[in-house]
């Protein structure tokens, strides 16, 4: 993953163009605050330290929901792949709930968990759970039947077959699900904080918009984008570390 300078050209040109439009062409800076104004705002937020508690609480919420979803998703995914009975019970439920937009469930979560952190974590959970559970199921079920036969003929059976063959073979898919969910958690946390919260990075952005501080609004969006980018890079780094053998075997599952 080498840094490619050529890829900086297009975003930087857009920012430059934006700056020019915002400064020299008569357009209300309320709609297009020049990037320098956003950066000034961002700098101020950082210097006063005011942005950090927002980032902190957003990360705590996102991470809590994500970790819960990872545990639940992996467990249910393995159980479904392991047992026909569990599959018959869980599969219809998964198919029913999965297509519901995460945000359609926001009111429900408010009713059930209140408007505090509970409902926000529940929303993150909903957003992260399905990619993890579905990739786990697909990963295990997709293990080459002949590879399983080869392992069985070498003496693998029962638990050993699962731990030493099925799960490692499914790991690329499982990890992809876990990585997709990190992005989901970032999307969902910002959304839910905009709907109802008095803290968090999503709140910062919507609050800026409500008070007509558009430069501040864009500064918040820059923070969100940086956060998302960082999480994605961390997830990819971890993925590549665990799957040294896989990333070099094929490029599938990587969207670089």
């Amino acid at each position: 993953m080498r840094f490619n300078y050529k890829k900086m050209i297009s975003p930087l040109s857009i920012l430059a163009l934006w700056e020019i439009i915002g400064r020299f062409i008569w357009i209300d800076p309320f709609f297009f605050p020049p990037p320098t104004a956003m950066l000034r705002e961002l700098y101020a937020m950082t210097i006063t330290g005011e942005v950090f508690p927002h980032i902190g609480i957003s990360i705590v919420r996102a991470l809590s929901g994500y970790i819960l979803a990872a545990f639940a998703g992996l467990t249910l995914g393995l159980l479904v792949a392991w047992s026909r009975v569990v599959e018959n019970i869980a599969d219809p439920l998964i198919e029913l709930v999965r297509p519901i937009s995460t945000f359609a469930l926001v009111p429900v979560m408010f009713v059930w968990f209140g408007i505090g952190n509970g409902s926000k974590i529940a929303i993150i959970f909903k957003a992260c759970f399905f990619p993890i559970v579905l990739n786990t199921i697909a990963g295990i079920k997709g293990v080459d039947k002949k590879l399983i036969q080869a392992a069985k003929s070498l003496g693998a059976e029962g638990m050993q077959l699962w731990i030493k063959v099925l799960i490692p073979a499914a790991l690329p898919m499982i990890i992809t699900g876990l990585r997709i969910s990190t992005a989901m958690s970032m999307l969902a946390i910002v959304g839910v904080e905009m709907i109802a919260a008095d803290s968090g990075i999503g709140f910062l952005v919507i609050d800026a918009q409500r008070t007509f501080a558009t430069a501040r609004m864009f500064a918040g969006i820059i923070v969100i984008s940086l956060l998302g980018f960082t999480f994605d890079r961390i997830a990819r780094f971890v993925e590549n570390r665990i799957l040294v053998w896989h990333t070099e075997t094929s490029l599938s599952g990587r969207m670089t």
Binding site: K146, Q149, L154, G155, L171, L243, W245, T249
Partner: peptide
Amino acid sequence: PDPLRSIVFQEYLLFPWKTVRGNIEFGLEL
């Protein structure tokens, strides 16, 4: 199946996450 009757397929079917040594040691590890 029984490890005393081993089968080898045309498609090799090695464990891609294991090294040469790891693959060969699989039966011993079990």
